[in-house]
Each structure stands twice: as structure tokens, then as C-alpha cells.
Design a protein around this nucleic acid. Sequence first.
DNA 1: CAGTGAGCGAGCTTCCGCTTGACTT
Length: 669
Amino acid sequence: MTKTKAVIVESPAKSKTINKILGSDYVVLASMGHIIDLPKSKMGIDATNDFKPEFIVIPERRKYLAKLKKETKNIKKIYLAADPDREGEAISWHLKNAFGKSKKIYRVSFDEITASAVKKAFGNPHDIDMHLVHAQQTRRILDRLVGYSLSPLLWKKVTRGLSAGRVQSVAVRFVVDKEAQIKKFKPEEYWGIEANLRKNEGERRSFMAKLEKIDKKEAYIKNEKEAKKIEEDIKRNTFIVSKIKEGKKMRSPQAPFTTSKLQQDAFNKLHFQVNRTMRIAQTLYEGVELKNKDTIGLITYMRTDSVRVSNEALDAAKSYILKKYGPEYYPQKPNVYKSKKSAQEAHESIRPTVPLRHPDSLKEFLAPDQFKLYELIWKRFISSQMSRAAYSVTTVEVEAGKYLFRTSGTKLIFDGFTVLYSLSNGSLEDSERRKEPWKVPVLSEGEELNLIKLFPSQHFTKPPARYSDATLVKALEEAGIGRPSTYAPIIYTIITRNYVKRIKGYLYPTQLGEVTTELLVKHFPKILDAGFTAKLENELDGIEEGAIDRLTVLKAFYSPFMHSVDEAKKNMKSIKREGIKTDKICPKCGKAMIIKWGRRGRFLSCSDFPKCRHAESITAGVKCPEPSCGGDLIERRSKRGVFYGCTNYPKCTFTSRSLPKEKIEETKQ
DNA sequence: CAGTGAGCGAGCTTCCGCTTGACTT
């Protein structure tokens, strides 16, 4: 049968479904993302000629483009169905140019792959929206200018092979700044006092209440001496119930997953790192072979910033909830969630493709990791359409002279969506509270209570927590930095560039990360600011709406930026020459030793280089475990990555992938 | 799994955002 129309989408996983919807008259092909880009080997932007970009076919995509042309050789009508966002519009435009004038080209856009949406889109083909294309080009050009100007600067000033960019440099800065906060942090002592109280003399049951206020002011106790004094003073008073407040609290379910929320929840609940989550999600999206040997996509697209859900899926969730849990578990009307402002909404939220497909029914076809992730996605989606949970909250205030104590208890009245999906991990909130009965006895205002004992306790304020993969993604997303398709690669980049190190799941800046961030912040404060991307996004929105011209944005950025680049070339401190000072003395000439970065990482160099050529490796602070060796371990870098060797090499050839002992601080390179 | 840097100077490193490959035994 001869096909008369061709459709091009971005991802091959979609093409099958779309072909089913459109019928045998269509051939559906995939572009595999962008096919045209700036050349890798040079800047490729002519700033003197309205920032004209030099576009080339991406070398790895030549094969695909050739295939697209071959398969559409005898077809006149081509429908470009890339994703309905900025990048998708650019892909469509590139494809259109690649095909030339011999074809009839139509742009169709749909944001869900259902028969009705696809058919509707094909009923309304339109032209390519050049405003969107220009917005994409502006972003692309600006990112190239920043990345390909700052990176060579670092090669000159620090060491070869480094990189910098609008996104990665801010991500590194987040980690560096967090570490600075932690270093600066001084734990402060404070004390709390709890009273163990009971209703009547002889009553077995007692309860705890916490000292909240002294003389109507927030109780703040600095040290043990003060605590003891207050403790003595409290004892002189009688305890009287002064206020009882009964209230009701509702907890709403959470929206179905976006990429970043999936990465965070999978990290918290399943302890998956973001790249593991994405790899597994990809397999669920591409499909798994079921009993009838049909390969079926189990979840919707996993790279999305939208919480939108198709009506079909909403209906399916509704019927499942009504049947399985009953009408009280379904709200008056469907729960509706709002995507964040910056969302591009090209895809739906991440949800099961068929909500009625219960995780248990798939267990035998899925690998354990796949099952866990599918179950998480399925539960999150179904619960997002369920009723709220209801709690009764009772707060009791007890006065002892000028001292005010408070206690409160929460009792679950209606579990609602929590029957399926537990909220925060490790929190007492839901599942735990349910097991614990209400501890405070029935009391009335004005009632006198017996004090059994006062419990003073010492506490210290805690430093902020370091980022994990998941919390860094969260911070980036909240700042509008990066996209669903780049969150996992960003983390990979800053770790493989040796700016950041992951130790037991938490991210530490390396000295290289700290040094480069300091240089960049000093000379490019605007670009290293999280607000830079937010401002850029606003301007890109303006271009998309046709309110601003792309040249206005690029010109306004370019000359001050190039001025900063020139200034930095002249004035930025050269770590390559000056290194970082240490208090070590060169054993050969007695001058100071400094830290420098070479192609194999950090090392100690004499500050009098090249006059004195003495150099040393930096030890990891751990002795070589080889018996009667006595050497120290050194972190080394090979083509295969980081490993630990011995200072006595080549005499001692001990190597290890990781340190035998945990020496976190000393091994930060 | 392995010896670093300055300078001479050829040729190389680098960005962000779309998307999934698979040269072999």
C-alpha cells in the first residue's frame, strides 16, 4: 500500500500510537530531537551580523535525516508534529528547511496522544510560529555566547578542560554557597522544658506539655543555669487548664508528578538517584512486554513540567476510586492542579497510561525497580483525584503563674487519599499518628492539674542540610533553572567536571568548584545570579508573544557581557600562575608551596616554579593498607575516572576505587 | 586505572536543550 502523508514526531515511542490513530494512509517517523544546531568546534555566531547563527546538521543526526528524506521520497505532504513548545517549534522549522520547497509542509500540534486530540490537530494544521522559533534561537545563541566565552577564560586562568554556563555554573554555586553557610554556622545552645502532667492524683495516665511562653513572650532559655532557675520557679505555681481549642484540619492530596517531583519523591521514598529514576521511567514509557506479548507503554512521557491530565484519564481515575473505595473517597468535583508559571505544558503530567492498570497486575512483568517506580507513579496519580483527609486537632493550654505550656493532639477522622499515598516520608503526620491513640485526657477549662515532673532538655540549632541530587533539582526548578530533560544531566556534568562530589548521597563542593565559582561570581555576578535565567525567561516570553524583538534582547545582553569578558581576561586572578596558598614549605628551596590544577587533578607546586621544579601529590589523609608499605593514599584521575593510589608507586601498586576509611573532609579535592 | 605546571605554539577542551542509539565478540 502506498502512503500519501508523512508525520514527523520527536520520539519514536510515540510514532506507533499515532499511526494507529491516523490509519494506514500515514507513515509516522521520528526526528529524535533536534537535527540542526550550532557547530561544536567554534562559536558559530556572527555578532557583527545580527547574531546570525551558523547552523549545521548535527553529525550524529545525519543518518536520521537521510532516513527521513528516503522514507518520504514519494510523499508530498509532510506534517511536522514535534512537541508544542519552543524547542519543538524550532525542530519543526529546521525540518521544514531541510526538506526544501518540493514538499507541502504543515505544522500540527497536540499536547496529548489521544484520538480526539490528534485528529483535532490534523484538522487544524497551521504555519510554523516564527516567534517561538526566534525565542528558541535567542536562548540557544545566548547560552552559546556565555558557555563558549566563559569556558575558555577558565582554561586560561585555572586549567584546561573546564566548563561554565548559565545553568551549570549556578548549580555549582548553589552547592558552594550551601557549604559556606554550613561552615559559617555556629550551633547555638537552647533549652526546652516539658511538664509531665496528670488529671487527678492517682490517675495512671499522664501527658506532656511544652513550655511555650513566659510573661506572654516566646520562651527562650539560653543555658542550663537559666533552665534550672526557671524550673525551680515553675514548681512554685499551680497548673491550671486555661484554654481548650478544638479544630479541624484538612490535608489535600498532591498533584500528579512532574519530572522534578518524581525525582524528589523517588529519592525520598525509594532512594533512587535522579539518573536511575529517569532510566527506569524511560523503560516504563517505552513499554514492557505483557502476557499477550504486546508491548505497552505504561506511563506518559517522563520529561514534563505540567500537571495537566487528560479527561479520559480523569474519568478512569474516578471510576476506579468509586468502585474500589466508595463515593466518600471521591471529591465533589475533580481535583484540578495548576502547573507552575514557567511551565511549557508540552506534555501531560507523568501518570499511568491506563489508570485501571493496577501495579499488582503488572508485577510479574516488571523488574523490581520498574515495579516500585510504577507503583509510586500510579499511587500518586490515583490519590491526586481522591478526597482530602480530615483530622481533628485539639490544643490545650496550661498556665502555671506566668508560665504557659501547650500540648496538642491530632486524630484522624477520615483518611481520604492517605489510604493510598503516604505524605512526607518519616513524618508522624499520617500513618504513624493513626496507630498512636490520642494521649491527652478529656479536660475542661479552669481545671487544676497535678505536676508529676519537669523535664528540662538541652538542644542545639542545626546547620542547613547539604543538597542531595533531589533537593538540588528542587532548588534549580524553583529558581526556574534547567528543564525536565536536563535536571539529571546537570548533576552528571558538575560531578564529572569535578566541581562537586557526591559522598553518601550528598553533594559537596570540591576546592576546584569553590575556586572557579569565586572567580566567576567576582567577574560575572549577573550570570552567576539565579535571577538571570528568570529574567531571560521573561524576555523569551516577550519574544514568543511578539512583544519584543530577538535582536533587542541579544544586543542588550551582548555588549556589557563582552565588556566583562575583556575585563576578566585582563584582571581575573590567574590560578594557573599564582595557585592557592598553603602553609607548606618546599623541601627543596624553602619557599611556600601552592595548589595548582593539572590534567590529572590537584597537586602541590613550589611557588617559585619554574625556577624550582619541585612538585608533590596531595595525600588523602589515609595510610596505604598494604602491609609494611607505610605510604599515603593519593586521589588520582585516569581516563576511567577517579581512583586511589599509593605515594610509593611504582614500588607499591595498591589501587582502590574508593577510600578504605571515610575521610570526607580530607578527600575533598 | 598513574607523574601534573610556565612559555614557545599546533590543536584540543567548552554551552543548553531536544531525543535514543549500540561499530564488536
